[in-house]
Amino acid sequence: MADKHTNLIVSAAPHVCNPTDTATIMRDVVIALIPALAVSTYVFGIRAILMTVICAAACVFFEWASRKIMHRENTIGDWSAIVTGVILAFNLPVGMPFWMAIIGCFVAIVVVKQIFGGLGQNFANPAIVGRIALFIGFATPMTTWSVTKNMSQAIINNAGVDAVTGATPLAMWNAGAELPSNLEMFLGTINGSLGEVSALALLIGGIYLVVRKVISPAIPCAFIGTVAVLSLIMGFDPIFQVCAGGVMLGAIFMATDYVTSPITTSGRIIFGIGCGIITMLIRAYASYPEGVSFAILLMNILTPHIDSITRSKLNGVEKKGAKK
């Protein structure tokens, strides 16, 4: 996901002038997220929209407040905080208390981004870290998928009884329970984090971003492809593994963040494959049912190394950072 785009700002000459700026890119990302929001509103009811709006507003507020405290230029106009907020909301269970979600926004915007100097200077994706911090810090609410009474009423009205399950498909899979059909998984009439449920809607958003040239397809393809191939090797159902949990959302919107992913195409492929491998390792073996966010964070941290090995060599310059 294009959270920010320093690589476009901080570059060697010549500087090519292009009408595409951060705000345009971020607006495209928001547009691409709308189908998924629509589906989750259909599945979970109005609280899905409420959660998304609250997260986006909290992120914008924290962005504004921290820039104000640091006496720096205001950056809320670049839409990046809104995108972070929406994506973070997409990563949360819909019944999550709002104050917890707001703490997640604080972690994402202030701790991960503004402490490091703001837009483009963070080394990890803000939404990912916000999600992981909530996931570890508030383990119970973050994994409580059974919805409240009001909520389940809304769900029954909206989507039929199918959706009122107490566990996500991945948790059911981990526990060895009966799973939803692949069609349900693909369309998204299942339980899960707010924006993760519909693979189809996320895919539509992803295609829009690729067509608009906001993201390159290298990372999503490598990520999703690796998950599918590894599922086959490990003897799991690849369609289920790809549609379940955060793979689609992570691969299309979070792993593709310009700032925290490699610059070159070969680097991006390595990045995507790495994400896929770690995701499947955590799913299959670790005590957490889902590993997408940990996988992306670890690859974010490895990005400088990936960049240094895949950077195109300059003629006549000794390669830096090469192993002795």
């Binding site: 402490i115 490091f116 080394f123 073996y285 670790a286």
Partner: peptide, 30 residues
């Protein structure tokens, strides 16, 4: 990076270490 004044130096390094240590938690139980 262009850090906020108070976070220049060791303070921001510690916050970076905090984020780095997060990803190791994902492997618990593996």
């Amino acid at each position: 990076n262009d850090y906020p004044e108070a976070f220049k130096g060791i303070a921001s390094t510690l916050v970076a270490a905090s984020i780095t240590s997060l990803c190791f938690l994902g492997f618990s139980g593996m």
